[in-house]
Every structure is written in structure tokens, then in C-alpha cells.
Design a protein around this nucleic acid. Structure first.
Lengths: 217, 217
DNA sequence: CGCACGAGCCGATACGTATCGTCTTGCAAT
DNA sequence: ATTGCAAGACGATACGTATCGGCTCGTGCG
């Protein structure tokens, strides 16, 4: 009763894997998550359906891998470009949050970048699809948080810890909560589309939040 | 140019309507949104499929109405309780945020109630399903925000305006942004399940947020 | 008044389509 | 020879539409 016929990953076709990931991402941005089907992905990738079902348990899982793949390549691209470009671009996750000593300015920079990312039409559809799926499916949501969100949040924690040591933030503040004070409102507005998500909004959130975290004179 | 659309709502069977709404809500909490089907709702409600398609355009729309219905009845229940508690004639509609003069205490009360609501197993599944659907489907999301969220948020705006007149909040603060500083983190934690959603968390959010909104001495 | 009559909703169900996830078949690679 | 792969047939659901009698109204004639 072999419960799981473990596929031999050493024999896996990387060519098919990439084609599947690319096709999934393309279809999601083109026709939306609802109307992208496994069969559609297989057809676009020039791949048999079984090749998808062999390696992924669900459409959401495929999209998650595709998204991780995109994030990885995007990070590489930005890192390479930022050397020749004069102005810093968006999506500067890998190196962490800058620490110029000015907490407000640093956070504004990062939150503005996050705003740009969320407003990026290429990233919007897949991100919304994954987030929505994770909200309903606890298992997938946990994977999403663990693989994509937590690493980001950890950057805030280190920056906020530094701010505490510098005396910009009270010592009794929990960084895990402080960070949610910053990105919670951003995500809320983006997810529910209550009002436009702008740089000005990010700036105000930073100012209000840091005001509540700063030492009381 | 819509000759086919115009069911006579005066002849509508309220019995069927209720049965459909109840069945939809029950199925969503029992088997989840994904696996509740229109056919399943019809069968459970003892109703023809066409009776659902006649009055609602989609599964999400049915669930939205079911949810509004639930919220309405729940509000009545609360009103009935508070009546026997001593208040002879309380308005049956939205009670609003209390104003005891202590902004922090008032907000903690309301945010704790919101936490309890979000953790209520009866409300959780339908709320998650509707929110997730709204995140992906902009049209439905707008309806969700307009019918369910905005009325709630308006209560915060009035309370925060009062706080501004009382001098507890700076006059240059936009209440629409201040309110998101409060509920954004709550929703963020609930939606993404990063950490448990507790009263203690609600309290800290209120303290940090109000600290950032208060007049600077 | 009273009672047929027709309009329209209702429960039920058949229908064609879409998508799912599994299974089968050759083929290519190793 | 073994195993992944492309292609697609297959049964199972669920969708949304189209009808079919049955039932409940409001209307108008007697």
C-alpha cells in the first residue's frame, strides 16, 4: 500500500517545471486566478496535466511556487540594476531595511516601496489570488505566511530593535506588534480597496505609528 | 433593453428566501466556502436551483445576503438583551462607539468586541469567505465594503471627531487614516493568522495608536 | 360577493458545458 | 528496463439554462 509513490525528483524535467511556472504566472495576470485552470496551464506550457499533478497538490501550490520563483528572479534583477541606476528602485527586500539613523525616513522609504509593489499591475493579480486563497485555506495561508511574509516581517523586527537601542522607540514596545501597526493599515487598504493606496498614505501611517512608539517625554 | 430581467419581488416567497439564506450559512460553516455549491444550497433548503438563480447572480451574492441577514438578526438580539438590562428605549440600529470621555477605554472596549466577533466560530467561516472573495473580485469587494464595512468605519469617524473636539486627538489628524491605524493591524493578524488575536493585542494596538494621535506636548 | 382565469413564482429535473483529478498510451531519455 | 513525459480519454461534479406541472395570488366578470 505505498501511500505515496514518491516521484524521483532527480529525474524531474526542469524545463517542464519552468514552463509550468511561467505559464501559471502569465495566465493569472492575463485572465485572473479564477479562470486559470490546470488544463490551461498545461496547454500553455506544452505539458501534460499529469506532470503538474505529479509535482503539485493544487493550483494554489503551483501559483505559490511560481510567485516565489518570480520574487527570486526579480530580486536578482533589481540587485544587478541598482548598481548602474542612480535612483533606488522599488522592491529592495533582500538587503533589509536601511538604517540611516532616521527611523521615520527609513520606514517611509520601505513603506513607499511596498505601496509601489502592491500597486504594480504585474504583481497585483497573483498576490491577491494567493492572499485570498490563504485567507480561506488555513494550510495554504500558513505556507504563504511562512515562505513569503515572515521573512519580510523579520526585517522590520531587526530595524525596530535597532531603533529601540537608539532610543527612538520605547524599550517596552513589542516589535512584532509595532510592525503590524505599520503594515496592517497598508494591507487593509490594499486588500479591501477602501481608499487609494498612495505614498502620502504610507507617510502618514509612519508618522502616526512612530509617534505612538516613541518615548514619552 | 432588459426584457428578461424583472422578477416581481412582491410575489417572492419569503419562506424560500429564508431557507436559502439559512442553508447557505450553514453549509459555509460546515464544509467551507469552496465546497458549498449552489446545488447543495438548493437541496438543503428544499428549493429549486432556479429559485436561487432567479434572485441572486452568484454564490457570493447569496452568501453576502445571508451574512447581512445574520448581522441584522444578531443586532436585534443584542438590542433585546440591552433592553432587559435597563435601557428602556435604545435605538435598535447601530449602537455606535461609546463616549465616556476616555478615548483609550472606549476604543479598547470596541476593539475587544471586534476581536471576539472575529474569533466567533459561527462568524469566522462566512466572514473569511466573503472577504477573500472580495479581495479577488473587485466588484463584490466594493459591495462588501459599502454594505458591511463602511457603516462600521463611520462609527469610528464620529468617535474620533469627538475626540478631536475634546482635545484627545490632534486636529490635523484625518479620522479615516486614524481608524485604519486601529483596525488595520487587527484585520491583518486575523486575515493572515500570523499570531493569535487576543484582547491583549487589541489593548496594545489602541495604546500605541492613540499615543501617535494625541497632541504633542 | 364569489369564483374562474391567467400571470408568475416555486420545486424539480433534464440538459449541455466546463473543470477537475485519475488513468492509459506511446515515446524519449537514461 | 525503468521512469518521467506529452497527449488525451474518462468519470465525477458543478455550473447555468430551460422547461414542466403545481400552487398562489390578483383581477374581473357574473
Amino acid at each position: 500500500m505505498a501511500p505515496t509513490k514518491a516521484p524521483d525528483s532527480s529525474r524531474r524535467s526542469d524545463r517542464s517545471r519552468r514552463a509550468i511556472l511561467d505559464a501559471a504566472l502569465a495566465l493569472v495576470t492575463e485572465v485572473g486566478y479564477r479562470r486559470t485552470t490546470i488544463e490551461g496551464i498545461a496547454a500553455r506550457a506544452g505539458v501534460g496535466k499529469q506532470t503538474i499533478y505529479r509535482w503539485w497538490p493544487s493550483k494554489a501550490a503551483v501559483l505559490m511556487d511560481a510567485f516565489l520563483d518570480l520574487a527570486g528572479r526579480s530580486a536578482e534583477g533589481v540587485a544587478a540594476e541598482s548598481e548602474s541606476a542612480g535612483e533606488p528602485d522599488e522592491g529592495e527586500q533582500a538587503p533589509g531595511i536601511p538604517d540611516t539613523g532616521d527611523l521615520v525616513a527609513d520606514l517611509k522609504l520601505v513603506l513607499r516601496a511596498t505601496v509601489d509593489e502592491l500597486n504594480d499591475p504585474v504583481l497585483e493579480a497573483p498576490t491577491r489570488a494567493l492572499t485570498a486563497e490563504g485567507i480561506v485555506d488555513a494550510k495554504l495561508g500558513a505556507a504563504f505566511v511562512h515562505k513569503l511574509l515572515d521573512p519580510q516581517l523579520a526585517l522590520y523586527v531587526t530595524r525596530l530593535r535597532a531603533a529601540q537601542e537608539a532610543g527612538d522607540v520605547r524599550a517596552d514596545v513589542d516589535p512584532r506588534i509595532a510592525l503590524e501597526l505599520l503594515i496592517g493599515p497598508l494591507m487593509h487598504r490594499w486588500l479591501l480597496r477602501t481608499l487609494p493606496l498612495t505614498h502620502a498614505y504610507a507617510d502618514e501611517i509612519v508618522e502616526y505609528a512612530v509617534g505612538g512608539l516613541a518615548p514619552r517625554p
